[in-house]
Each structure stands twice: as structure tokens, then as C-alpha cells.
Amino acid sequence: MVLAQQGDPRAFESLTLAHYTRLYRVAKSILRDRHTAEDATQQAFLDIWRYIRRLREPSRFNGWSYRLLVHACYAEAKRGAPKVGEVEPLSKDIVSTADEYRTIVDRDQLERAFKRVSVDYRAVIVLRHLVGMTPEEVAEVLGVPRQTVYSRLRRAEASLQSALEADARLPETPAFRQEVVR
């Protein structure tokens, strides 16, 4: 870390390698698109390189890097839709039972609902529920008061619920049902 702060590219390369997957997972969860998430992750690392001398306490690197990543995600989201319409592979190749079908429908509904939630709300949800941060830690990462995190979490969950309810009112696509239960 100190060497990277002193401008050593090799040290920064090691740092990037060690933290790449951690940041990518968060970016992917926020942006829901692999290519956009890779772009955001790479931009976050470039920002880390650029500003790493501002980091006075190396022990805070993880939180600080999340902050830069979230801002990179905001920027990527602002650029618009994902570059490529990508189909994510399902964790199970063959779905044969009603429960498994139900699980996939749930996942699909959650996916659609989550994408309807604004990116700043998604960031709060991901940091809280994927990374497992406390609201205080989320507040520090996002640079907002703790109460703001609480209110964003409440609103995010409410938005998610509204999106799920709206989604539930839509008829299921017969083709999709046919595909997953065959």
C-alpha cells in the first residue's frame, strides 16, 4: 500500500490483483451487467491509483475503495443501458420441479424489480446485504450521515417492494414458463 502511494506500479498491480474480485462483485451487484461492472471496476482502480496518496490510513483502504467504486458505478449508470444484452447463466441447468421453477421466477422478478430501483438505492442495498456492512460503515463509505443510510434503506426496500408488486401484476411469459418446466 505504501509503495503504491509512492507511485510504484508493481505494488499497485499487486493491490489491484488482490482486490479486483471484491470490487467487481459489488459493481456487478449494483449495475446488474457484467460488461458495465468491469468498466466500473477498472475505472475505480484507476481512481484508486490517482488518489491513493490522499489515503492517510491504509487500514481504511477497503471502505475508501468501495467509495470510489460506488462513484464509478454512478457514472457508468449515467452513461445508459448495458452495452451488450447479456444472458446470465442460471446456477442450475435443468429445472424440473415446481419449487425450482418458483425459485427461478422469484429470482427473475427480483432481478427486474431491482433494476427499477435507482442506482444510489441499489448501492445501499448491496453494501448492506452483500458486503454485510453496518449502516454506520455504509454511511462512511457513501459519505452521508447514518440517518441518511437508514432512510435510503427504508426507501430502497419500499421501492423494491413496489417494483415486485408491479411485476406480479404482469402476466408470466408463456414461453419462459415453457422453457423452464420442460
Binding site: 489491484t16 447463466p89 429470482r107
Partner: peptide
């Protein structure tokens, strides 16, 4: 659970690091 399940495959960190570098 849903967030963890849907992260999907992570790209090769070596390749990602090379692109950054």
C-alpha cells in the same frame, strides 16, 4: 441470498488487472 447467487462468474482478476495497468 439473491445478491450472492446472482453475482455470477467473476472475470479473471489477472486479466482485469492487466487492463487496469
Amino acid at each position: 441470498d439473491w445478491l450472492h447467487e446472482t453475482v455470477g462468474e467473476t472475470p479473471d482478476p489477472v486479466e482485469g488487472t492487466q487492463q487496469v495497468m
